[in-house]
């Protein structure tokens, strides 16, 4: 078989392995879907009434595209947990001693995340529709929006691959993810318009890729006037993927269990 054929086959074998594990660790999947649903309900029913979103008929139209971005970005978190666990248990040593493609372990992880993220999109929009959200744009725009979500989720799978490879245990990965990355999602336009923030925070939030992608999602899902952000969002998604795939694969080449 050709080199490329082998790489594709290795990646699919490992993606299958990751997906086989999901129903066997139901706690992983529930943690992954329940938390964003709770957040949605919290923001819609508790905080929503107090948050003004000029230009939107209802807060829920502002919130859902944003919270989908947050959820999708953290979809890759299973990659961080999985890789740190593989590292701790010595599986990475086994994989690295096999005559397989050097990128396959990480590509297999990130590909299986796309599948999980698709499920997560269905759940999040399903819950959104139940609490009053509606798509206000053309089907083409919605499709492009869903594609952007999966692409952005894929980019963050690579960010979390690097987090996982630098964590000696899933606990460390958890801490790194929630201390370093989670707050970034709040310093953005995901939950509230940035205009109400103090000026220093607003300046940060406006350049935060989470804001760009959330605003692009609003443009594509509810026709908000953020058309320019769509290009920016794709650029971020592709840029993050390239940079973090490079960093993660070079880290993987040197990774050993301890």
């Amino acid at each position: 078989m050709s080199q490329l054929g082998n790489s594709v086959s290795d990646t699919l074998v490992l993606a299958k392995r990751n997906l086989q594990r999901i129903p066997r660790q139901p706690d992983l999947l529930t943690g992954y879907t329940i938390q964003p649903v709770m957040f949605t309900l919290l923001f819609v029913y508790v905080f929503g009434g107090a948050i003004a979103t000029p230009g939107y008929d209802d807060y829920v139209d502002f919130l859902i595209p944003g919270i989908v971005v947050q959820t999708i970005a953290f979809g890759g978190f299973t990659t961080a947990l999985g890789l740190s666990d593989d590292l701790r248990k010595g599986l990475i040593d086994r994989f690295r001693s096999l005559p397989m493609s050097r990128g396959a372990v990480l590509a297999g992880r990130t590909f299986s995340d796309v599948f999980l993220n698709s499920i997560s999109l269905v759940i999040m929009f399903g819950v959104g529709l139940l609490v009053g959200f509606s798509f206000l744009s053309s089907p083409g725009e919605v499709a492009l929006g869903l594609f952007l979500m999966l692409l952005f989720g894929y980019a963050f799978s690579w960010v979390f691959a690097l987090v996982g490879l630098n964590s000696s245990s899933p606990e460390t990965a958890n801490a790194l993810g929630f201390i370093a990355i989670f707050p970034l999602t709040f310093a953005s336009s995901i939950f509230v318009p940035t205009a109400t923030m103090p000026s220093w925070l607003e300046a940060f939030a406006n350049v935060n890729p989470f804001s760009t992608v959330s605003d692009a999602a609003r443009a594509l899902f509810v026709g908000a006037p953020h058309g320019d952000d769509v290009w920016g969002a794709f650029a971020w998604a592709i840029g993050i993927t390239i940079v973090f795939a490079f960093l993660s694969i070079s880290r993987y080449r040197r990774a050993v269990s301890n």
Binding site: M1, N6, S9, D10, V13, L14, R17, Q20, R21, R24, Q25, K89, G90, L91, D93, R94, F95, S97, L98, P99, M100, A104, S257
Partner: peptide, 29 residues
């Protein structure tokens, strides 16, 4: 040309014994 086992080489706890070996076989192509 090599096989590695022992203290640090490992198996996947969330796969069956058969699935583990099959996966390794596929990765040896």
């Amino acid at each position: 040309q090599i096989g590695l086992a022992g203290q640090y080489a490992a198996v996947d706890e969330n796969l069956t014994g058969f699935e583990n070996l099959e996966m390794v076989g596929r990765l040896y192509h």
